[in-house]
Nucleic acid binder design. Structure first.
Lengths: 212, 212
DNA sequence: CTGCTAAACGGACTACGGTCCGAATGTTAT
DNA sequence: ATAACATTCGGACCGTAGTCCGTTTAGCAG
């Protein structure tokens, strides 16, 4: 059930882990959760984290690579659960339901996820030039693309999936909710509207469908 | 033809400008363009800029507020031109053409714009928690929303416009082109496909259309 | 020309993410 | 137990965006 590791702090990955490394990893994760609880995700700095955990700053970066990596590690449990649900869970999110229903459910779940872990998700994205190439993002993209193809969308499903993914970007969703007071329900409804139109419509402007 | 100022370095805005301020503004803009020419947008740091222009760092931030503000100022000419074209220019981008055609043209133009000024546009967005509230972004959003309404889209045009805007996000577009080697033409084609489906389709899942 | 004042200046300072490398430590073979 | 070695540790160090405040100066009145 582990699936694609979002950003392994290398717990039991690959080879064995030295005992001090394991101890520090636990120390760091615990300190990170404490700090986030106390001051929010934005209040977590790598210096503070190192100090709180009682380790050197280098150790923090050795473990997690970057601040975004740390955030991903903190999210990995819930992220893995989410992945499990949309890949192997019960319909309509999981397999068994029509693709359109699965797409709708996917967006709704993702929106709920962002509402719950939004700060972390945003911090995990932040400043990475490769935020679209992170394993989890690639997986979502492929999932959406697969559903589009299954639903019979033939017009560049890869780019269409990119467009749909962009709609679910944490930063944008949070902005809509926090600044413009859009309810998550309204977001989900709009998402369903969007995917319905994308899936159920024959492309009008389609010239030569295949190019490269 | 000045339209909404993207991020005024306060050239002749409001009151008069002291002569040394005007001189330094010119110095800074010139130095900024030089540096970008030499080392790219990412190679422009505020320290280097200050040094190159021969002014203090404080002066740079006094003028432009932030790095993103500086980038917006650098873009303001071409941005204003773009705005002029889609608001008052000839069809199909400007008024006179059917909304769907205008939407398609809008995306295509925007994509071309990002291909040309992408680095700057990305830098202008970067790290602003309010990047969606910047005047230019608000204007694009309103424009798309207006076109959707004109085209008869009744299902939450505000959010639908947000989704469509997100597709045109510079960071995403550049990523697709640079990492995945998607051609701008393919991006434009996919955009047309998307807006066609959004506009031409009756909503399927629509329950009660109005809520809040 | 002189003096006054509000505005602009400038660069030291802070906070932060990230890097580096000599020192310390656990693991394993003997 | 000991020695050898790879791994990890730790914190000084760097580059960057952004702030602060004492100093300078443009513009103007007399």
């Amino acid at each position: 059930m582990s699936l694609i590791p979002i950003r392994s702090g290398s717990p039991p990955g690959g080879e064995t882990e030295r005992s001090d490394a394991a101890r520090n990893r636990e120390l760091l994760l615990r300190a990170a959760r404490e700090l986030i609880e106390e001051r929010g995700a934005d209040g977590l700095t790598m210096d503070r984290l190192a100090e709180r955990a009682g380790v050197g700053k280098g150790t923090v970066f050795r473990r997690f690579g970057s601040r975004a990596g740390l955030m991903m590690t903190l999210l990995s449990d819930s992220e893995a659960a989410f992945q499990g649900r949309f890949m192997f869970g019960p319909p309509p999110l999981g397999p068994g339901a029509p693709p359109l229903d699965r797409l709708g459910a996917f967006g709704a779940e993702r929106i709920a996820y962002v509402m719950e872990f939004g700060e972390l998700a945003r911090a995990a994205d932040a400043s990475a030039h490769n935020r679209f190439d992170v394993p989890a993002a690639v997986l979502w993209h492929r999932h959406i693309e697969m559903l589009l193809r299954t639903a019979g969308v033939t017009a560049d499903p890869w780019l269409m999936a990119m467009s749909l993914s962009s709609t679910l970007d944490p930063e944008r969703l949070l902005h809509a909710v926090r600044v413009h007071h859009v309810t998550p329900e309204r977001l989900a409804e709009s998402w369903r509207e969007l995917v319905t139109r994308v899936v159920s419509c024959p492309g009008g402007a389609a010239g030569p469908p295949e190019r490269a």
